[in-house]
């Protein structure tokens, strides 16, 4: 079926977009990969839709004031994935984005749309949270910012108010000695949504010991889960099999798993620690190579 008729509004500022959204009790349109399929299935039948495409300043990848990287909400997943600065400084993000759907979806889907959707099964939020991303929101009432892990509130529920627009995400500067890995486990076909995904970002000191580490699980619970207590285990330690296992065991008390078509609550709880351990070991293993590559650049 096609998409039902609606009126497309194309504001040029986000404040105006925010006002139109409130006035018509509708939602913004970015890449449309999620919205259009919902509309085709008649799950969502709006009279108006507010396109974000004509608003300037929402796209692209640019250096952030803080020294990190600023990614506009309207940047497509693919454009971020292949951006030279992302590839060289945030390979974890590149790797994660490359695992999303297929290249055609990634050229349409946007970073803002991905986050705003609030779907627990999405891959990118894991890596972004692991990297310490902050999300910027704006509305006719003003702008605000929050840590991405605080943005996801519940099942398809985010901290974004209805009239708020995601303006972009900011990544803190990366560390020379950092490495990461996104392990996407699909229980159906390889091109499917994740059953459980694990994003790991480790910073080490010069002696090869871990300084800090962030481990995030996606698709396992109602929201992305940033494991707590990882630093207590790994700080000052090498990422050995035993240490990785200790981190993995944190999932036993912290993961309140969710059942879906890719796995039951039991199954997700069973494989989560396995995947956490593997992702940590892989991230640690990758480190020297990542460092070499960076030297080359």
């Amino acid at each position: 079926m096609g998409v039902p008729r609606f009126e497309l509004l194309e504001p040029v500022t986000y404040e105006e977009a925010s006002r139109l959204i409130s006035a018509h009790e509708t939602i913004p349109l970015a890449g449309g990969t999620a919205i259009i399929s919902m509309m085709r299935q008649r799950l969502f039948n709006p009279s108006h839709i507010v396109s974000l495409h004509k608003i300037s300043g929402l796209g692209g990848v640019s250096p952030a004031k803080s020294g990190g990287l600023s990614i506009g909400a309207m940047a497509t997943l693919r454009s971020v994935e292949i951006h030279p600065a992302v590839r060289s400084q945030y390979p974890l993000l590149s790797e994660t984005l490359s695992s999303v759907a297929n290249v055609r979806v990634r050229w349409s889907a946007t970073v803002g749309g991905n986050l705003a959707h609030g779907d627990y099964r999405l891959d990118p939020p894991g890596a972004l949270i692991a990297l310490g991303a902050r999300v910027r929101l704006g509305s006719a009432r003003g702008e605000r910012e929050l840590q991405l892990e605080d943005f996801f509130r519940g099942f398809f529920e985010t901290a974004k108010e209805d009239d708020e627009i995601i303006l972009g995400v900011d990544l803190p500067p990366t560390d020379e000695e950092a490495s990461g890995h996104y392990l996407k486990f699909t229980s159906h076909a390889s091109a499917d949504w994740p059953c459980v995904g694990v994003a790991v970002y480790i910073k080490e000191n010069f002696s090869g010991k871990c300084e800090s580490a962030r481990v995030v699980l996606t698709a396992a619970a109602q929201t992305p889960l940033l494991l707590e207590g990882v630093d207590e285990i790994l700080s000052g330690e090498a990422v050995t099999e035993a240490a990785a296992q200790k981190v993995a065991d944190l999932t036993h008390s912290q993961l309140d798993s969710i059942e879906d078509s890719s796995g039951s609550t039991w199954y997700k709880r069973e494989i989560a620690p396995v995947l956490v351990r593997r992702a940590l070991l892989e991230a640690a293993r990758r480190k020297p190579k990542a460092r070499d590559e960076r030297r080359k650049n």
Partner: peptide, 9 residues
């Protein structure tokens, strides 16, 4: 054997 809850799926 997995626990009772495992029979969910």
């Amino acid at each position: 054997a997995p626990g009772k809850e495992a029979s969910g799926a």
